[in-house]
Nucleic acid binder design. Structure first.
Length: 339
DNA sequence: GTTGAGCGTT
């Protein structure tokens, strides 16, 4: 026994008359629009003053004009183009083929099929451009690389910079010929070239490499006479003669930290008050760190010994030796100021 | 100022 209403809607064998009509309408609708297009011509370049009547009057000679739709702004003024619908395609063809002879209101107008090739090409180009923009935007949003990539990149950059720094240093160090050739740069070396690192490392290295300095010597009020020796004879030249065995150059070692230290380097090449910076055998000097004169209140500050530009002549200019008064800035060249 | 706008959905 089959209930009348049990049949699923989707398999209904027949449609009512009304349904059929609806279907016809739906089916007809789309083709109708297409037909509208193929029987419509676009008319561009109209005068604002051109009326529908004028347009109809012009296009009537190519066939039966169904309608003319001049596009207007809300205020009613013409936008300068119109759609002319013919009742058949042949009229459109005739009309389009005669494009050279369309003059309305004494003005040449453009007549093309609705959605003609030029229009479609323009639309296509526009679509392509939009798609391209979207693609680009998407890429930018996603980002060109991951965080890891960035880190890798920066590490690489750092190493490269360190290497180039080392190269520069090796070049400038070669001037006095006292230092050994700088070894090939590696990250560890790059780190060691950091002034702070040198400050930290030198005490240890000095102790290990220069046992001579471990010998106790009394403080030398008046400064380290080695400065003179340094200026004239290089590191170690002062040894023995004037009471201080420190080769008074401009290394990174605070003088006061060394047993037997004179308590201050008057050489003019010191960075810090009271911090004689003995040059370190085998280590490149730090030209950029030099040039600080002796400081007031420190034994080295009043050192009479330094009257010449000293070991680091050229940037310190020996200011520190001129007076025991307030510190002068090292010609503006010093990037490292005391305290 | 040379290509509309409505209809109404996934």
């Amino acid at each position: 026994m089959m209930m009348p209403g049990a049949m699923p809607m989707g398999v209904m064998p027949a449609m009512g008359a009304g349904d059929e009509d609806k279907m016809k309408q739906v089916m007809a609708k789309k083709p109708k629009r297409e037909d509208d297009k193929v029987t419509t011509v676009f008319v561009g370049g109209l005068r604002k003053s051109t009326s529908e009547d004028k347009v109809i009057g012009h296009f009537a000679k190519y066939g039966q004009v169904d309608s003319v739709d001049i596009k207007r702004l809300p205020d009613g003024s013409s936008r300068g183009f119109a759609f002319v619908k013919f009742s058949d395609k042949d009229s459109v063809n005739r009309c389009v083929e005669a494009k050279a002879s369309h003059m309305i209101d004494n003005k040449w107008v453009a007549v093309r099929p609705h959605g003609g090739t030029a229009f479609q090409a323009a639309q296509h180009a526009e679509r392509q451009r939009m798609a391209h923009d979207r693609e680009k935007e998407k890429k930018e949003t996603e980002g060109p690389a991951t965080q890891d990539d960035y880190e890798e990149k920066w590490s690489e950059k750092y190493l490269q910079q360190a290497a180039s720094l080392q190269d520069d240093k090796a070049d400038s160090d070669g001037d006095d010929g006292k230092e050994k050739e700088a070894p090939a740069m590696n990250p560890m070396m790059a780190m060691m070239m950091n002034p702070m690192m040198q400050m930290m490392m030198n005490p240890m290295m000095m102790g290990a490499m220069n046992p001579m300095m471990m010998g106790a010597r009394p403080m030398m009020p008046g400064g380290c006479p080695g400065a003179n020796a340094e200026a004239s004879g290089g590191p170690g030249a002062s040894q023995g003669s004037s009471g201080c065995n420190m080769p008074c150059g401009c290394g990174m070692m605070p003088c006061g930290m060394m047993p037997g230290c004179c308590g201050g380097c008057p050489c003019g090449g010191c960075m810090m008050p009271g911090m004689g910076m003995p040059s370190m055998p085998g280590m490149p000097s730090m030209p950029g760190m030099t040039g600080m004169p002796g400081m007031p209140g420190m034994p080295g500050g009043a050192a009479p010994a330094v009257t010449s530009p000293s070991a680091d002549a050229g940037d310190g200019e020996g200011e520190g030796a001129e007076t025991s008064g307030p510190v002068k800035e090292g010609g503006g060249e010093n990037r490292f100021k005391p305290y």
